[in-house]
Amino acid sequence: MSDSPVDPEDVRHVAGLARVDLADTEVDEFTEQFADILDYFEALDEVPEVDSEPELVNVMRDDEVHEGLSQEEALQNAPETEDGYFKGPSVS
């Protein structure tokens, strides 16, 4: 088991942040599994700091208009639309 055991409230908190509802049975199962997995991740603590030069370059392009999806195509998979818009639940 981990030095910092995971409790069911931790799992519920993270699930809230991630916007995933969980059944009570899932919370219990994940609590046990996360303790094992996070305990295994603890070994990352032994990794030395590494000086590395990231191989990154800027990729620039001209800002040109291209053909894109039509409004109809963009909406074709939405469960609900109205007047050419996606329709979602209220925000607050």
């Binding site: 699930a15 509802d21 639940p89």
Partner: peptide
């Protein structure tokens, strides 16, 4: 999030509740 694609959520709740319910239904363990 069940808005642009995915199962239709419960439109009665607020955004976060609807979002979390769709993801509970749509994702496996």
């Amino acid at each position: 999030d069940g808005v642009r694609y995915g199962p239709e959520g419960d439109r009665e709740g607020n955004w976060n509740d609807s979002f979390a319910a769709v993801r509970e239904e749509g994702f496996g363990p």
